[in-house]
Amino acid sequence: MLEGRLTHASTLKKIVEAVKDVISEANFDCNDSGITLQCMDSGHVALVLLQLNSDGFEDYRCDRNITLGINFAALTKVLKCAANDDSLTLKADDSGDRLNFVFESQKGDRVSEFDMKLMTIDAELLSIPDNDYDVTIKMSSAEFSRICKDLANFGETMNISADKESVRFGVEGDVSAASVVLRPNETIDEDEKIVSTSIMVKKETNVNLSMKFLKTFANSSLAGSVTLELQDDIPCLIKYVFPNDLGVLCFYLAPKGD
């Protein structure tokens, strides 16, 4: 059986919010080291890879490997009922046909419970090569979100090019063109945390990516910073690392090209 308790239900809420426009249903594979989800969009353009480590849970126990087939529309309905500072306890027995959610307020004076029917999802897993990318950019997730939102109005393809000094996000539309150039820096955000832009380049890179997907994957609520890994003609990796060793949410996006 699986039993996992997250201190903040909002963690799962934000993850589901971030992926529900890309995938409609997916398997959560649970074992004693944590929970993994791998799923592509229906067009095979983007892939979501979620890894939640058992250590990041307040309590976690999974005696046997279990696959939970989840419909995201149903999951969204359940998670909408959680207040942001509620804790969340997930429970499933070995049959894997239902998933139980318990939300508890911080003071313990309100407990709500939901039971969700699971489905059998016939999903093929892909093997993702462990690529050593030519370019690694780490930046504020709010900045990445702003760039994608601003530039999305100008065209359907984002060109990202990076050299040792800067990274350029550019769009060529039918009637206008737009670009944003970022250089390495270090600033202090409103929570007095250091938010830096770092650019590591082994080889100058130039990639074209779908604006629609980038806009979906640019999400400032998941983590304070985002890492972009790029290489010519290789799927781009957009990675959010959760605090307290809870895990990562990765988006892989296939490039555009001739």
């Binding site: 093997s127 393809t157 290789i234 555009k256």
Partner: peptide, 13 residues
């Protein structure tokens, strides 16, 4: 510009 598929890059397990 043509959108490529992830299946061109990642093999099935």
């Amino acid at each position: 510009m043509k959108q490529k598929s992830l299946l061109n890059f990642f093999g099935k397990k």
